[in-house]
Amino acid sequence: MSPLLTKEQLENFALQGLSYADDHVSDPFSIKDVSERLGISYSYFYHNFTECMGEPFWHYVKRHRLELAAGLLRHSGYNIGEISDHCGYATTAAFSKAFKQHFKESPKDFRRIIILPNEKRTLQITEGITAAIGSEAFRGLFNYERCEKMRMPDSILYYTLISRGQDPVAEMIARMTQHYTLFKKMQTLFDLEQSRIITGTLDAVPVTDYEKLSMFAGILIPATATAAHAQLRQNFSYLMRKRISGGNYLKLPVPMDFATAGIPMYNFISMNCKEGVFKMSGNHFFISLNGPNYSEIFIPLLKKHY
C-alpha cells in the first residue's frame, strides 16, 4: 500500500468497511472478505479502521449488530429467534449470550424495559439542540390517522456520513444544506425522477450512545433503475452503498424541515410500537427531504400491520 495516501483516502477505506458491515449485518463475513473487496491487505485495513474509527473493526461489527438487535426488540414484532437471524447469529443461544454480555440484560428482560438510559439521554440532548427550531408546535401532526400505507420497491441508498461522533445531531444540522445541494444536483444531472433524498442514522436510536451515532444523507434509488446505478457508481465511487428493503411502509407527510421532524418522529414511532398500533420490520426508518420546509417520514411495517 502506497504511503502517499491522503488522510481523506484512508478515511474512505474505513468508511467503506463500515458501510460493508452495515449492509451485511445478517450475513456471515470476515475481515478478509472486506479487505479483499477494497483491494488492500487484511493488516492494513485492520489497523487503518481502528485508527480512523476509534475501535477495531470486529468490535464495531459486534456492537452494531447487537444494537440493531436491541432496536428490533424495542420496535419490531419479531421473536428473539428471528431477531437473532436478522443480526447474523448462527444460533439463538449464541445471540442471547452475546446480547447479555453487552447489555447486562437478556433479550427477554431487555424487551420489558420501559425507558432505556440511552433513550432518555439521547432525546434530552437532541431536544436541547432542536428546541429553538420549534418542534413542539408541530407535534399534533404526528398521528396515525395522517399516515398513508404504501409499497416501496427494493432500493439502493448512495450516502455519505455527514456527522459521526462527538455531537452528531448538531453537526448534521450544520452540514445538511451542502449535502442536500449535492444530491439535488445529482438528481438533475442524471434525471433521477424516481429517487428520494433522505436522511437518518445507521444506528439503533436510542440504543447507541449519542456520541457514537452515525448520521447520513443520501439518495435512494429503486434497484430496478440499472442505468442510474451505473452512472452513480461510475461518477461517485466514493459514496457508500446500502440495500434498503422494499415492502410495506407508513408514509407521514409533515410541513417541516428534517431537524424539526426528528424528535416527534421518534416519539411517534416509539409510542405506537409500545401500544401495538404497528410494529416495524426493521430499523431502516428515514426522513425524505422534499424541500426546505417539507418532509416525509417513512416507517417499514411488518406485513400483519399493513
Rank of each mutant, 00 (worst) to 15 (best):
R74W: 11
I83T: 02
I162S: 06
N48F: 02
L141M: 10
D109R: 13
A94K: 15
R65A: 00
Q124K: 15
T130H: 08
F49K: 01
C147D: 00
G134V: 00
E136Y: 11
F95P: 02
S30N: 06
N118M: 09
Y42V: 08
S163R: 02
S96P: 05
T92A: 11
I129R: 11
A70V: 04
F49R: 00
L68C: 12
K120L: 15
C87N: 10
F29I: 01
G54M: 05
Y159L: 00
D33C: 04
E36N: 13
P56M: 04
P28L: 04
G134D: 05
A69D: 03
F142W: 04
Q101H: 15
G128L: 06
K149F: 09
Y144N: 06
L161G: 00
E67R: 09
E136Q: 12
D85K: 15
D154L: 04
Y144W: 10
I31R: 11
H47N: 13
F45M: 07
I162G: 06
L72C: 06
I83W: 02
K104H: 15
G54N: 08
G140T: 07
I115K: 13
F110I: 02
Y60F: 14
D85Y: 14
I31G: 09
E36W: 09
I83Q: 02
F29L: 03
Y42A: 06
A70G: 12
A90D: 13
M152A: 13
P28Y: 08
R111A: 14
I83D: 00
S43G: 13
K108I: 11
G140E: 09
A132V: 13
S30R: 10
G134L: 02
E67F: 06
I114P: 08
A93P: 09
S106E: 05
Y60L: 02
R146F: 07
S96W: 07
C52D: 07
T92Q: 15
F99P: 00
S30P: 01
Y158C: 00
K62G: 01
D27W: 10
F45I: 04
L161M: 11
S155C: 07
T50C: 10
I83K: 01
S35V: 02
F29M: 04
P56L: 03
G128S: 08
Y78M: 08
W58C: 11
L73Y: 01
Y78R: 04
W58K: 14
